[in-house]
Write a protein that binds this DNA or RNA. Structure first.
Lengths: 332, 332
DNA sequence: CTGTTAGCGCTTTCAG
DNA sequence: CTGAAAGCGCTAACAG
């Protein structure tokens, strides 16, 4: 491993000049820069990130804090983040919180300990005040996707709007008996606040139409749990004619249950989900779309810009959802 | 941010002693160690990873190189890796290769440049000789999950066995017209070798039973593509009575297509997949199980041990698959 | 525009 | 068992 001294010597300049030529900071005569660059590539020189980091305070990495990375939403988001980070020549270090929040404190202490990242992207659950100020005190700016904390720039899908959009779609088709199946009653309070907002949007839309909301919350919003729940919900004599599911995964469980009960979708039952999950097309599922991959890219771009020139921007931005109509919904 | 000097001063010892006490390396009087530890916690001291890394050459992070992280397999694996890494107090830095392999060289150059990780876990596709020796020359050991390169410790699901297991299950039920739907004919050669092995296992089992194999390879192994393909496959007059799908995702597409054509599963059609995907239960899908989360943990444990005491072990280990029978398969 | 001189914060010989 | 001193490899003033 060649070090910068070797490069400097080969180019016949000092370490400082070599450093300037390589980093682009500071002015160097063009001819000199060329020589340094050539020497560097001849020696296959790569700066030690530890040394750079020690000298500059910059690590060249961003952290991502996320629950349940084996999830469509989070993994798709991660993909967007990873791609954008690559484009900006940043490493991404991943902190998985698992399903619950038990690991949270541990993870937090752990990565706070190391000043290993230049910025933190927190997803899905809200950061606490203490966490934010803790990060700020060691100079790590945080941004959030999903529930944002005060003092932190954040983006969040307009989840209440998601609920009204989905519900109004069903209402506009003439449905009256519209159920809602959401999730996450037992998980950490700060997690999955989104689903409570979706439920609220549903309730609003129903009441506005003079109808009685009938929400159910699964304690575990998986396809399995949803399937089991839908089986009993759809067997009831006064079964709903339409369902707004808080996620596509829940919707899939419902669709599968409906078919195994012999109900025809959308003739006997209309279903709308949320996400536009990778399988939504195969299920021909009407859904409210969000694009986590694009969100990931957008956030990384913002973080990179803010790292270069801190903006102090701590605004909370709502992302507008979009209805995608497929074949799982039809007039009542 | 307190530095080690502050701790040393508060404890009334030298930096060197403080460092020894904190790291546990070298011998320190018990009383002294106690004072140092107290001072450290009083000052909320955390060693700068950049400084540690510069002095020791260790980074405290492992890299994961993976294609398509927004995939059930990879994201579940990632979860196992992240959890195990957390337990070992290691950061995990993520390199996503996307779907194809265009990014590969770029990513490779990029993280080679930085000596930012202590070890690399490569997943799904094989490392080239050049890549392995390149990594070795800068002292980064690599391990592989999936196709392993020579000189690299690796684990791999026994994919040919997967194919025979699935096919033999269908044969044992009395099926004769068994189709196979696999994937990835257009992607990078080194990617998804797994599916070719699964196909080979299928061919072997079919020939051994004196039957004619009928494999199809989707150029894009998604649920959507699978759905579209299955529609035409199942409409043919001489349609298969059983299908071995190379992944659960492909199987789901087939199941959805079958149902939309009015075919009853498993009465009119038996389907077996591979993975035991999170949705396999909801689909009541018979499948050949693999457990990427557990694989991730196992690999990290191995890497950690090898980092402590290099074993020189470069063996290639096959992981035995396991058939999980559910309701999507029945006697012919 | 370029070289010299100090560090960044930690670990590690080497003496004592 | 402990302290002094010498780096790890790079960048950032500060002169010139």
């Amino acid at each position: 491993m060649a070090v910068i001294d070797d490069v400097a010597r080969l180019a016949g300049v000092s370490k400082a000049t070599a450093s300037r030529a390589l980093s682009g900071r500071g002015s160097v005569a063009d001819a000199t820069r060329q020589r340094v660059l050539q020497a560097a590539s001849a020696l296959d020189f790569r700066a030690s990130p530890a040394a750079v980091s020690l000298a500059t305070g910059r690590t060249g990495a961003i952290g991502v804090l996320a629950p349940a990375i084996d999830t469509w939403y989070v993994s798709t988001l991660l993909r967007g983040i990873a791609e954008a980070a690559l484009a900006h020549d940043l490493d991404v270090v991943l902190y998985d919180l698992g399903r619950g929040a038990e690991m949270r404190e541990r993870v937090f202490e752990r990565f706070l300990q190391r000043h290993h990242i230049d910025a933190l992207i927190s997803t899905t659950f809200a950061l606490t005040h203490r966490e934010v100020s803790r990060l700020a005190s060691i100079g790590i700016p945080a941004v959030a996707l999903g529930d944002g904390a005060a003092g932190v720039r954040s983006w969040c899908l307009d989840d209440e709007r998601v609920g009204t959009l989905a519900t109004e779609h069903l209402l506009s088709l003439g449905h009256r008996r519209i159920a809602h199946v959401g999730g996450s009653t037992v998980l950490d309070e700060s997690l999955f606040a989104a689903e409570r907002l979706r439920e609220r949007g549903y309730q609003r839309a129903m009441r506005a139409a003079g109808l009685q909301p009938e929400p159910t919350l699964l304690h575990d919003p998986t396809a399995d749990a949803s399937y089991a729940h839908a089986l009993s919900m759809l067997r009831a004599p006064d079964r709903p004619r339409a369902v707004f599911a808080a996620t596509d995964e829940i919707a899939m469980g419902i669709l599968l249950a409906a078919r195994s009960l012999g109900l025809r979708v959308p003739l006997d039952l209309s279903v709308v989900g949320v996400d536009d999950h990778a399988y939504a097309g195969a299920f021909d599922l009407t859904t409210v779309r969000q694009d986590p991959r694009e969100h990931g890219e957008r956030i990384v771009d913002w973080v990179v810009a803010d790292l270069r020139a801190p903006s102090g921007d701590t605004s909370h931005e709502l992302i507008a959802p979009e209805l995608v109509v497929r074949g799982s919904t039809a007039p009542a």
